[in-house]
């Protein structure tokens, strides 16, 4: 009884049916939160006295950057589940998360660069956070490329799992080394001085957007997972029945 909630994830059919419902809830919830948070951040939050209006980019940049990092960790959890419990769905999740992770990493890099132009006067600086984000993008690219190169989906999934696990062990080392390298080389003038805590009128919309983007990511991952499950289970009876009913 106690482990039922976990083991039912082993059934693609159970997932496909439930995920459709969850997706609906997540989609509308995310849309509401994102519209609310973004409009609040863009129009109602006070102007930053140092950066002016350009700071409003953080209402997109910060949630997306959080998500980009969290998704790699989520991928690693899926890899563990794949190897320990041999759960096929974990591999499907890994495949979906890699694509979403790359998209969000790219978005956070671009929004960071655009924010950097008015703030630092240049699109790109070799700042610690920007550099480790760039490396994260390459890690996601590697996972996607590896899967694309191997034909057999089971084998591709396991190969990606190994890569993700090795990557997640290295990720903190990469992050710390990049930070150390940055303090070694970076002239202090380019660093944004640590500001005092944000007033509530600024961080509440940010919080709304962070939650919104997380739920949006769940929505997107569920959607992509459902499509992949259908494709992979195309020979099973329940899929055939489902399609012929439609």
């Amino acid at each position: 009884m106690g482990w039922r909630w976990f083991h039912q994830w082993g059934s693609p059919r159970w997932f496909y049916e439930r995920a459709g419902r969850w997706q609906l809830v997540c989609g509308w919830l995310a849309l509401t939160l994102l519209i609310m948070g973004s409009l609040w951040g863009l129009a109602l939050a006070p102007v930053d006295y140092q950066q002016g209006n350009s700071y409003r980019i953080i209402y997109l940049h910060v949630p997306v950057a959080f998500l980009a990092q969290a998704l790699y960790a989520a991928m690693a959890v899926c890899a563990v589940v794949l190897f320990v419990w041999k759960m096929k769905l974990a591999d499907v999740a890994m495949q979906s998360i890699a694509v979403m992770g790359l998209a969000f990493t790219a978005l956070s890099l671009i929004s960071g660069a655009v924010w950097g132009k008015p703030t630092w006067g240049t699109y790109w600086v070799w700042d610690a956070r920007l550099t480790s984000m760039l490396i994260l993008a390459f890690l996601y690219l590697g996972v996607i490329g590896l899967r694309a190169a191997i034909q057999d989906p089971d084998q591709a999934g396991k190969a990606c799992g190994i890569l993700v696990l090795v990557g997640v062990v290295n990720l903190p080392i990469i992050k710390y080394s990049v930070e150390w390298w940055n303090t070694l080389h970076q002239p202090a003038s380019l660093k944004l001085t640590e500001k005092p805590a944000m007033p509530a009128s600024m961080w509440i919309p940010l919080l709304v957007n962070i939650v919104g983007y997380y739920i949006a990511a769940v929505y997107l991952i569920l959607g992509s997972m459902r499509a992949i499950v259908l494709e992979r289970e195309r020979r099973s009876a329940w899929v055939r029945e489902l399609v012929s009913r439609a």
Binding site: L34, S38, L42, G52, N53, S54, R56, I57, L60, H61, V64, M100, A103, F104, A106, L107, I110, S111, V114, W115, K117, P118, A216, Y219, L220, G223, S224, R226, A227, I228, L230, E231
Partner: peptide
């Protein structure tokens, strides 16, 4: 800073919308 802020949000919308659309099409 309008030239910086608005295109960023536009791109964000494009990415979220594009991924949603891609999922629907794949399905």
């Amino acid at each position: 800073h309008g030239v910086y802020v608005w295109p960023t949000y536009g791109l964000g919308l494009l990415v979220l919308g594009g991924l949603t659309l891609a999922n629907v099409r794949q399905h």
